[in-house]
């Protein structure tokens, strides 16, 4: 396995009207090709910022940062599932899913076909011609996810993609997501505020500190795959969870103290 994403001592300082603000203090991480890595941390610690920078939509102000491209020239390097969904209200569900393909100049016939396949996979075929304003929040999240998957990027960057879902749909989509990942074996960087979700999905959980965000610890998750809902009741799972929670709770506490 080769290293796909590498950050060494990366920093992000925003210059605002009130002065400098360090959003990311020290991001040091290494993600192998085909790995599913989850990032957890208190809100405001810089997870979204980190993801946007890795996506190439912003830049670090210090440190070494490197993303290794694959051989294939046509495959996009990464696509993001944004925390705010960011699906375009002026495009139908189908057109949203086909957006990346359209931008890459793929013919209408082929991109429609691909988009329909993905809609089928997540049970949204019926809503292909609806506009985002006409579907529920959960559906929008699924559209945002398959918009990224349909574009077939080397790296999938997801920012709390299931954040707004109720517990039941969340479980269902998590399982679905694992299945999709199993089929495609993409490199995934997945930001979440749910520790359970991180352990359930990831090969590895990275713990981020309260602001200014640092990656303070890396937990390999050795729980066997394929995983299912029952995985969450195993001893391995609960042990890992209490181990990480011990540290995470400290950071969440610090973050809340910061805000006061």
């Amino acid at each position: 396995m080769s290293v796909k994403i590498r950050c060494q001592g990366c920093q992000k300082v925003y210059r605002t009207a009130e002065g400098e603000f360090t959003a990311i203090g020290d991001a040091t991480l290494q993600i192998e090709e085909g790995q599913f890595v989850c990032i957890v941390g208190p809100s405001g610690c810089g997870k979204s910022t980190l993801l946007k920078i890795i996506a190439g939509l912003d830049y670090f102000t210090a440190g070494e940062f490197d993303v290794r491209h694959g051989e294939s020239r046509d495959q996009p390097i990464n696509n993001v599932v944004f925390q705010e969904y960011a699906i375009f209200p002026w495009r139908t569900v189908l057109e949203n899913v086909a957006f990346g393909l359209e931008m890459r100049g793929i013919s209408k016939k082929i991109r429609t076909e691909i988009a329909r396949e993905w809609l089928q996979k997540v049970g949204l075929s019926k809503f292909a011609n609806y506009f985002p304003d006409q579907i529920s929040g959960g559906m929008k999240q699924r559209v945002a996810i398959i918009r990224a998957l349909a574009n077939d990027p080397e790296i999938l960057l997801m920012d709390e993609p299931l954040g707004a879902l109720d517990a039941q749909s969340r479980l269902l989509i998590q399982e679905e997501l694992l299945k999709l990942w199993d089929e495609t074996k993409k490199t995934v960087l997945y930001v979440t505020h749910s520790l359970d979700e991180a352990i359930f999905l990831g090969d590895e959980v990275l713990l981020m500190s309260a602001n200014p965000g640092r990656i303070i610890k890396r937990y390999p998750i050795t729980i066997e795959r394929p995983r299912s809902i029952n995985t969450m009741n195993t001893g391995d799972f609960t042990r890992t969870r209490s181990e990480i929670w011990e540290k995470l709770a400290v950071e969440v506490g610090r973050s809340m103290a910061n805000q006061q």
Partner: peptide, 26 residues
């Protein structure tokens, strides 16, 4: 909203494409 522009960039819309597919309808 800035996030639409970011999404446009991330999915390969730049220049005129970004204008016609994101900025104009937005």
């Amino acid at each position: 909203e800035g996030i639409y522009i970011l999404a446009g960039h991330n999915y390969g819309a730049h220049g005129l494409k970004l204008f016609f597919k994101v900025i104009l309808p937005g």
